[in-house]
Design a protein around this nucleic acid. Structure first.
Lengths: 414, 414
DNA sequence: GTAATTTTGTCACTGAAGCAACAAAATCGA
DNA sequence: TCGATTTTGTTGCTTCAGTGACAAAATTAC
């Protein structure tokens, strides 16, 4: 069933939607694989050769893809199929990650290639306006030596905090001490509304990244956990992100797993992040709180875990078990600090998961480490920014005309 | 955006898919509202009048809908719009609910009308084969006096247990002491494969029912909880059921909320259902376990809850809070025993939910009681059975030709 | 009763995908 | 080396779903 009925809207469809869908899907394949043969596209999309040819031709006309006879390595008999790759005209996005100490930017091209990076300092206690200025300034720098005909189709921002999907507002970002900031508006104002700015939280982008280019490629149901002092969750179900009504879905950090447990920043007791977050790990290792930054290294050195650390592992296992029972995913991916914690307490986690989840032949959820490491948020921000392009290439590419120049020339204070 | 790209498949679309989508969506509107004007369809589906006319004409040709000038009550000026209603040819499904003590059946028509009911005893310790025989026998009875040209388009089965979506296997049904039963196969064999049999668990069908015809109409993200001795969850996100990889999603009963809590049937401690299930409620009320069937009445009589009962309420609140934080739904619906428990301990539950969830203007999850009461599972089973019809009316209705006769004449032992 | 409003049916038109036939390119086998 | 085979790309034609414009029909308001 190629088209999916989106029940709540109950809207009808027309040929134009088909064309949009097909162009977007085809471009998605190119973006995903970097290089696909037309024959492969024909098979995968289950369309006629002629149709694929027409679709590719249209995208080629826009300059976003190019066709070429394949290089060297042959496979099987028959005339070799033309390959479709990102085109002459460079299609790219700016991916931004707001961290507590720095702002990371990357320019990411169609196909997922990282074409450039910049890092800017995030002054302690920076306010959102300063940060937005810095982002735009650095983005302009990053775009300075890009070909003039390049197509900048979006800006994606990732950050630790609670983000409202619809309006791009940051509801609350404890690590940055921001609350109720319309950050995507701040950026859009500075670049003259040239291009849409989309924003997501770190765990949400983590799962997007791992699903698109990490260990969860090809899966349909994935839970991603990003652990630090707090714990966030990113969810993919049926191959799409689960965002909830406002976009606040995935706040698993305050899932209560022991009502009488450790006290959490939120005031409650026994929140999951109080039990497995950086503070709990530091306590278990006997690390003073100012050395929390080195927890990863300390965890790497753990050979046989101490009883307190094993207790943390147990709690990790309990929470993972809850999520498996709730979501029935193919994998749970442990990001951030958790990817250092897990190897240290693997036995306890695995035992708890086995004990608490039903384990049939057709269902065996894997617990995995991320495939993208530190880059997951910025890669996810790139994927997020590319999203619109993959659902309506024509509209987005025509809207993006001139955006590059506009961002380069963004007026900034000082 | 009328068509939704189903990312994982990456398939293309064609005009045929558009037609399918539009016919299905239109029929879905008729099914949902029972009676829609063509003008309303034009607005809602955002299609041309001519297109709507053509679509209605095609469905009318099949006999599944009929057009008529509206009765009496007029609204506004202008030529009155033709109304579309379920057609002369009766389109229906058989909805089945397997309970511990009985098997309930209903015949449900397009539009959601319950056209007939039967109840059959479920002998204690019945095996699946006996139950399947009984279902088919009762279904034949239920279909005895139906017009010969009626179209039986599906059979939906709901039951308490863990069900695999793809193959319709019941993995485990503790209350019935069944495990690993291919129940939909058992039914399909008996009716000669005339018609697809779809199966779902009670909480999953509960949320489907409340979403289609209960308090959650029009919502996009809903959590439904069905409480008894165990607690099950049914989830809707983006207007569609969340099933997970195998269909085991929503098993919230064994979500651990206090690691050192009451012992659960599963062997663990502090599972949610151990804290808020029937046994916990009975303990809190001081009710002996053999009177567990009267818990609803006892809870109705509660005026001011006792401290132990308030503790149960607290645990209910904690679990609901967890789910709100994870899913960010518009509503959490409390079904089964929980709909009796909630009014008794409402203050404690609400306080806990307020305390544990962030509460912004655009996000205020409601805790609701079901709108369908005892019927939710059977209504949900009906909706489930109608599902295929709403995504491809042509294919389903032609496949259903002759199914009625085949079910009536199903060969049965004795 | 007349005008305004709204909906309907009809029909020619547009646009997208499918199909079939033919030509081209590469591989495999003798 | 050459022909048979396989696979692909191209082209013109067909099919079909949705659209827009027009005139007609039914109702309400003045």
């Amino acid at each position: 069933m190629p088209l999916q009925q989106q029940r709540p809207t109950g809207k009808g469809a027309n040929q134009e939607a088909v064309r949009r869908h097909n162009l977007g899907t085809l471009l998605g394949h190119v973006h995903r694989d970097g290089d696909v043969s037309r024959a492969a596209l024909t098979t995968r999309m289950d369309l006629n050769r002629s149709t694929i040819a027409a679709l590719v031709a249209e995208l080629e006309r826009l300059g976003v893809v190019a066709q070429a006879t394949p290089r060297g390595d042959r496979q099987g008999a028959g005339r070799p199929s033309l390959h479709v790759r990102p085109g002459e005209r460079e299609v790219c996005v700016i991916a931004v990650e707001l961290r507590v100490e720095s702002i990371e930017l990357a320019r990411i091209g169609l196909g997922g290639a990282v074409l450039g990076r910049r890092s800017a300092p995030m002054a302690p206690g920076s306010n959102p306006d300063d940060a937005a200025d810095e982002v735009v300034r650095t983005a302009a720098d990053l775009l300075a030596d890009v070909a003039d005909d390049a197509l900048l189709v979006g800006i994606g921002v990732g950050m630790p905090g609670i983000v409202s999907t619809e309006d791009g507002r940051i509801h609350y970002a404890p690590n940055l001490s921001w609350s109720d900031v319309a950050f995507s508006d701040l950026l859009e104002q500075r670049i003259g509304g040239a291009i849409p700015v989309v924003i997501g939280n770190d765990a949400n982008l983590g799962v997007l990244a791992e699903h698109a280019r990490g260990v969860a490629r090809g899966m349909t149901d994935v839970v991603y956990l990003s652990g630090d002092v707090g714990v966030g969750g990113g969810l993919i179900t049926r191959g799409r992100r689960l965002l909830g009504t406002v976009g606040y879905a995935g706040e698993v950090g305050h899932m209560r797993i022991t009502v009488d447990g450790r006290r959490c920043r939120c005031g409650n007791r026994g929140c999951w992040e109080a039990e497995i977050g950086a503070l709990a790990v530091a306590d278990a290792l006997g690390t003073p709180s100012h050395e929390i930054a080195h927890l990863v290294d300390l965890l790497d050195e753990v050979d046989t875990p101490s009883p307190p650390l094993r207790e943390v592992g147990l709690m990790l296992g309990v929470g993972i078990t809850n999520l498996i029972n709730i979501f029935d995913p193919q994998a749970v991916i442990l990001g951030g600090l958790l990817s250092a914690l897990y190897p240290a307490v693997r036995d306890d986690v695995d035992a708890e998961v086995r004990r608490g989840t039903l384990d049939s032949e057709d269902r065996r959820t894997e617990v995995l480490l991320p495939g993208l490491g530190r880059d997951s948020v910025i890669v996810g921000a790139g994927e997020l920014a590319f999203g619109a392009m993959m659902s309506d290439p024509l509209a987005v590419s025509s809207a993006a005309e001139g955006a590059l120049a506009q961002v380069r020339a963004a007026p900034l204070p000082r």
